[in-house]
């Protein structure tokens, strides 16, 4: 049994990777179809407008292919294989709104402004929500417990953009202590100097807090109900009747209650990536969400498709990571048992 565990883990990882690749392929196909079938056929439109500008059809075809990563003419199948082929080389085409710049470059620049705040927000809200959830469960018959649960329900119900707008209104207008938007003040020289880093952090506070509050409600409610459920489990009473120290019993309780949350962790990261569209718009933060919004308003289809693809791949990767994490911490999953 012990010997087969290593093999089981390897099989599991391989399975996840294969499933992940299939999902990426499906998403890539969908984004190809969307761009190809979007009303007005932007690819064909671009091609024709280039010809109207006096380009030869061959030149126009090449130019369009560079922009979208696939040929504007030819059969759907040729276009599709061309598109997948360039995807394999991590080529997502070139941006229209920022002429000549590769979509991958733009996405690479934007990604850091989304990934770091989203991860920071997820981590903060997870730690905060889980801790408060334990308190809410233990004090569930008291005022504090009610209050905590209420704060969870309330924040869970408020849409993320409302939280963002409220925070902006409070901290940049009513009580202006934080910058209202942008990633950093322009007067500082980029680099590892105190002024730049300080300004960077200052600008990150509101987006990160918004991400945090957006998922905090879910964590506290989920953790509370998990703790209450585990408290009713026999092994907790058994541990008490064996005279285990309070700290040890608490660890038994916390570890068993927190475990199911790791599956939600992935979903939560995904939700926040989606939420980044609103949050970055509100705080004028140059991340993937804002990139997607801008690409839509400027009808930059190559950029739109690329951003969409990258956000989705991010969510898929987060899901796989969470599942592998779960495998690492839950012995029942690890050994393939069915308990």
């Amino acid at each position: 049994m012990t010997r087969s565990r290593g093999g089981a883990v390897a099989r599991r990882v391989a399975g996840h990777l294969i499933r992940g690749l299939v999902m990426v392929w499906v998403v890539a196909t969908i984004s190809f179809v969307i761009i190809r079938e979007i009303p007005g056929n932007p690819v064909q439109g671009q091609y024709e407008s280039l010809i109207q500008k006096g380009m030869s059809p061959e030149q126009a075809e090449r130019a369009t292919a560079v922009l979208y990563g696939f040929l504007p003419t030819g059969s759907l199948w040729d276009q599709y294989t061309g598109y997948l082929g360039s995807l394999l080389h991590f080529d997502l085409g070139r941006s229209l709104s920022t002429p000549g710049v590769e979509v991958t470059t733009l996405i690479g620049h934007a990604a850091r402004w989304t990934v770091l705040p989203v991860l920071a927000g997820t981590l903060l809200s997870f730690l905060l929500g889980v801790t408060m959830g334990v308190y809410a469960a233990i004090k569930r018959s008291g005022k504090l417990g009610d209050l905590l649960a209420l704060s969870g329900s309330l924040l869970h119900g408020v849409p993320v953009y409302v939280i963002g707008l409220l925070l902006t209104a409070i901290f940049t207008t009513l009580w202006p202590i934080l910058p209202s938007g942008g990633p950093v003040d322009v007067e500082f020289v980029p680099g590892l100097n105190p002024g730049y880093v300080g300004s960077l952090l200052q600008h990150a506070v509101l987006p990160v807090v918004t991400y945090t509050l957006a998922s905090y409600g879910g964590w506290i409610l989920a953790m509370k109900s998990n703790v209450v459920a585990v408290l009713g489990d026999d092994f907790i009473l058994a541990a008490e009747l064996r005279g285990l120290k309070r700290g040890i019993v608490f660890r038994y309780l916390a570890r068993n209650a927190i475990l199911p949350l790791f599956t939600i962790l992935a979903l939560s990261i995904g939700m926040l990536f989606g939420g980044s569209i609103f949050i970055e718009e509100i705080f004028n933060y140059p991340g993937l969400g804002l990139l997607l919004v801008n690409s839509i308003s400027s009808r930059d289809y190559a950029l739109m498709g690329g951003t969409f693809l990258v956000i989705t791949v991010g969510i898929i990767v987060a899901n796989i990571a969470a599942d592998l994490l779960y495998t690492a911490i839950d012995p029942r999953v690890r050994s393939g048992g069915s308990a």
Partner: peptide, 18 residues
């Protein structure tokens, strides 16, 4: 535990699953 030992019903799960 030390002075008085207690054994739970078999069907109940008296052990930490993790």
């Amino acid at each position: 535990g030390r002075k008085v030992g207690y054994v739970f019903q078999a069907a109940q799960n008296s052990l930490n699953p993790l």
